[in-house]
């Protein structure tokens, strides 16, 4: 990067967690009614990327792979301050698991001449956390996951990070290009500026690329190229709880004492 790095941020549109409901009649999961929102860990990714730009300059470009309505999350990213947004959309991508998804995102990062790719920790719908390491692996780039803080080292053409390791932390430096996955909740995503937000929501149009633009062989993406398949889904019966709300502490103590735990 030396200076002015190109920072590409992977963001995804997901169904709003809070609104995913079980249809009381069928017992089936009703995702259709849930509004589509930006995967919340990706906000931390955007903030981390914009933070690097604050430090050393450069460009922050958001990318999302998904159907055309996913462009909405790009608008949100641009409102927050990203310089541009790229919608990666092609029927060929349908049914992709993490393998082709990370392949596609890796190709896009390369297409955009990325020095740094920043992702969220995981998505709230598929919650694999595998896409960022996958992007790095497809390109043979370095990776930094569970990142709490980034520190660009432009002179050394490196990026340093503080990573969360369970029970502690470590500081790591990585050569560029590098893929970063920012730990969820680690930073305070900046609010969008008023005029930027008006622009992003009303005038901004993302760049759209497809498999052809990215020079991706259609056989290497989509359902066919996905090693994993969903074999079945069962709704999990919620654990039946007493759900007794007691009025005072003595009653609570009594309730706890009467459980088998104290027998």
């Amino acid at each position: 990067m030396t200076h002015n790095p190109t920072i590409v941020v992977g963001i995804k549109q997901v169904p709003d967690d809070d609104e995913v409901r079980i249809d009381p009649d069928t017992g089936r999961l009703d995702r259709s009614s849930a509004p589509a929102v930006l995967n919340s860990p990706d906000r931390n990714a955007l903030e981390a990327a914009l933070g690097v730009r604050d430090d050393v300059g450069g460009q922050v470009i958001a990318m999302t792979m998904g159907p055309p309505p996913a462009a909405d999350v790009l608008k949100e990213a641009v409102a927050m301050g990203c310089d541009d947004g790229v919608l990666i959309s092609d029927i060929a991508f349908g049914g992709s698991d993490t393998w082709p998804t990370s392949l596609t995102l890796a190709r896009t990062a390369e297409y955009l001449d990325a020095d740094i790719v920043v992702c969220g920790e995981e998505t709230t719908d598929s919650s694999t956390g595998q896409v960022p390491p996958g992007i790095a692996a497809h390109r043979g780039w370095a990776q930094l996951t569970y990142v709490e803080e980034l520190e660009p080292l432009p002179e050394a053409n490196q990026l340093a990070a503080r990573r969360d390791v369970e029970g502690g932390y470590e500081r790591v430096v990585a050569d560029l290009p590098v893929v970063v996955a920012v730990a969820f909740g680690e930073n305070e995503p900046r609010p969008a500026g008023l005029h930027r937000k008006i622009y992003a929501e009303n005038e901004f149009e993302p760049v759209t690329v497809d498999a052809n633009d990215l020079d991706i062989d259609e056989e290497t993406v989509g359902l066919e190229a996905s090693p994993t398949n969903v074999g079945g889904m069962e709704t999990i019966e919620g654990v039946d709880r007493e759900r007794t709300v007691v009025d005072d502490v003595d009653e609570l103590a009594e309730a706890i004492r009467s459980t088998e735990v104290f027998a």
Binding site: L112, Y199, E203, F204, V207
Partner: peptide, 16 residues
């Protein structure tokens, strides 16, 4: 950076 991005103008307009 690629040309497709470099050639675009995404500056924030003034809405006043």
């Amino acid at each position: 950076m690629t040309e497709i991005i470099a050639d675009r103008n995404t500056e924030t307009p003034d809405y006043d």
